[in-house]
Simulated scan of single mutants.
Amino acid sequence: MERGVFISLEGGEGAGKSTQIKALSNYLTDNGIKNIQTREPGGTPGAEKIRDLLVRGDVSLWTPKTEALLMFAARQEHVEKTIKPALATGKWTLCDRFADSSIAYQGIGHGLGMDSIESLHQWVLGDFKPDLTLIFDLPVSLGLQRTQGHAVGENRFESMDVSFHERMRKGFLSIAKSNPDRCIVIDATKSENEVTNDVIKVIMAKYGKMIHGQSC
């Protein structure tokens, strides 16, 4: 059986990843591509418990190093128990955030450094990375404005100061520049439908033959 495709969706707060992952999943399903949606931190019962530790509470609850270690603890569970098994059965796996978020948030936003996070990634996951990463980019002020009214309690990262979010945005763009074969930047300031159309264009440009072959 052919391995599934692993696609991660990245970006700052309020970038619209949750909306677009659903739209992409629906598009793939309509074209005969079996897929799953998952998220980070989370994706398994144990990782979801770690998620609660990370996304709730005061911004100073964890030191940056502790935060990074918790993220990778959840990610190890997620990869081994959800992502790899899905890919092995041929399912496309759509993930709302993955390891690039650790580089942008803890590595650059919190100042731990990209090298430290990449070394941690190598130790925990080796060379395992997404096949394609869509980075949804928009101004920090607009993204934070959009997050108003999101899930009550899950706002620890949203509550961090604006300078943190600005550093994080630059981090995502730096990741995209350093990984042009894997990362595509999507303009998230557009309307929901326009962003969805841009996402589908990227998917079809890269995997169109695979999708058409599956749906024939």
Rank of each mutant, 00 (worst) to 15 (best):
D30N: 15
G32E: 04
G32H: 09
I36P: 03
I36G: 04
Q37I: 15
Q37Y: 02
Q37A: 13
T38Q: 01
E40G: 10
G43N: 09
G43M: 05
G46A: 15
G46H: 10
G46I: 04
I50M: 07
R51V: 02
D52E: 09
L53S: 03
L53E: 03
R56F: 08
R56C: 14
G57A: 12
G57Y: 12
G57V: 08
D58V: 05
V59D: 13
V59S: 14
S60E: 10
P64V: 04
K65R: 15
K65W: 08
K65D: 10
E67T: 08
A68Y: 08
L69N: 06
L69T: 07
L70C: 12
L70K: 12
F72N: 05
A73S: 11
A73M: 04
A74K: 02
A74C: 07
Q76E: 09
Q76D: 14
Q76M: 10
H78N: 05
H78I: 09
I83E: 03
K84C: 07
P85M: 14
P85F: 07
A86V: 08
L87Q: 08
L87M: 05
A88V: 11
T89V: 12
K91V: 00
W92G: 00
T93A: 13
T93L: 00
C95F: 01
D96G: 13
R97N: 10
F98P: 01
F98G: 01
F98K: 07
A99S: 14
D100T: 00
S101E: 07
S101V: 10
S101D: 14
S101M: 02
S102V: 03
S102F: 11
A104G: 07
Q106E: 13
G107P: 03
G107L: 02
G107W: 04
I108D: 01
I108R: 01
I108W: 02
H110A: 14
H110V: 06
G111R: 06
L112P: 03
G113P: 01
D115F: 10
S116K: 11
S119H: 12
L120M: 13
L120Y: 02
Q122T: 05
W123S: 13
V124Y: 04
V124M: 04
D127Y: 05
D127S: 15
F128C: 08
K129P: 00
L132H: 10
T133F: 05
L134A: 10
F136E: 10
D137R: 03
D137G: 13
P139T: 05
P139Y: 08
V140G: 12
V140E: 06
V140H: 04
S141N: 06
S141K: 11
S141D: 13
L142T: 05
L142S: 07
L142F: 09
G143H: 02
G143N: 11
Q145F: 06
R146G: 05
R146C: 07
Q148D: 09
Q148V: 15
G149S: 07
H150P: 00
H150N: 11
A151Q: 13
A151F: 04
V152K: 10
G153P: 00
E154W: 00
E154T: 01
E154D: 15
R156K: 03
F157M: 15
M160V: 05
M160Q: 13
D161C: 06
V162S: 15
S163L: 03
S163C: 08
F164W: 03
E166Y: 06
E166K: 06
R167P: 08
M168H: 02
M168I: 14
M168E: 09
